[in-house]
């Protein structure tokens, strides 16, 4: 692939990381979170990033989404190279080109559901596209909950508001950080269904970090990370194939030379990546 844009939607790249490295600390205490990772996220594709705790999957997403800085390599969102951007420009890029769904604290408690959905456009000072907004709200089934505040909504409903917010501004790409992590399986399935529909029917690009094979099965493609490197990828995954693959994982291991990392994925250093 060259970096020249193509008109062909099937192969056009929404975001691309090239030789991306992220290193914390120096000398003895140095930790390599991402080790020369190169990956493309194609338009209208639903990608799941998987890996054990500490594999660098969240770091990868944060770097590609312009939330975190990286040590070397390059990241492009569409035509924009992120490495050269100042904080202000990065903020603007996130506001205009990227949608976000987090695991928790997605919504402002003081705003109604509708106000939360239009928040990115309010920040940009843009008027939302009324027709599109209505479509999105109808799709996530929130039409009768728009004037409610987050505290009056269930966890699943809150996350649907977050999905609607991410979709409403028609971003180039949506990033989800364990978007179903705090939900029960039924609500989780709903949210994932909306994300998949937005890709299939609206041509939205979605990248999601998850550790749940069932969630990953909604994606078109799964990218597996371990010790800061991409170790494999899988197209048209199912929960079983993903689970099978996960079982073969060495479970983090000390292969990357960053010896400070503990063995058990579940008890990995919580503060840095989730």
């Amino acid at each position: 692939m060259t970096t020249t844009p193509t008109v062909d939607r099937a192969t056009a790249v929404a975001a691309r990381a090239t030789e991306l490295s992220k290193i914390y600390g120096q000398g003895e205490t140095q930790v390599v979170a991402l080790d020369r990772v190169s990956v493309d996220f194609r338009q209208a594709e639903f990608t799941a990033i998987m890996g054990p705790s500490g594999s660098g999957k969240s770091t990868l997403m944060h770097c590609v989404a312009g939330l975190d800085t990286f040590s070397s390599g390059s990241v492009r969102i569409g035509e924009t190279e992120l490495g050269s951007l100042k904080d202000k420009q990065l903020t603007k890029l996130r506001r205009d080109k990227i949608g976000f769904i987090f695991q928790a604290f997605n919504l402002l408690p003081t705003l109604t559901a509708l106000e939360n959905i239009t928040l990115p456009m309010d920040i940009a000072g843009r008027k939302p596209d009324k027709q599109w907004l209505d479509d999105v709200i109808r799709m996530v089934g929130l039409s009768d909950r728009l004037s409610h505040r987050p505290s009056q909504l269930s966890g699943g409903q809150q996350q649907r508001v977050a999905v609607a917010r991410a979709l409403a501004s028609r971003p180039d790409i949506i990033f989800g950080d364990e978007p179903t992590g705090n939900l029960d399986s039924r609500s989780g399935a709903e949210v994932l269904g909306f994300l998949r529909n937005s890709v299939r029917e609206l041509g939205q690009t979605v990248v999601m970090v998850t550790h749940d094979p069932v969630a990953a099965a909604y994606a078109d493609r799964v990218v597996f990370l371990a010790d800061g490197r991409i170790v494999d990828e899988m197209y048209r995954p199912t929960a079983e194939t993903v689970l099978d693959f996960m079982r073969q994982f060495p479970g983090g291991g000390n292969t990357s030379g960053s010896g400070a990392r503990p063995q058990t994925p579940e008890f990995d250093a919580k503060g840095r990546t989730s």
Binding site: K88, T91, R94, R95, F105, L108, P109, P120
Partner: peptide, 16 residues
């Protein structure tokens, strides 16, 4: 801080 972090992530700049 979590709210502010979220606002920053979805595009509210430092000045705002």
């Amino acid at each position: 801080s979590q709210e502010i972090g979220m606002l920053r992530a979805i595009g509210l700049d430092r000045k705002s």
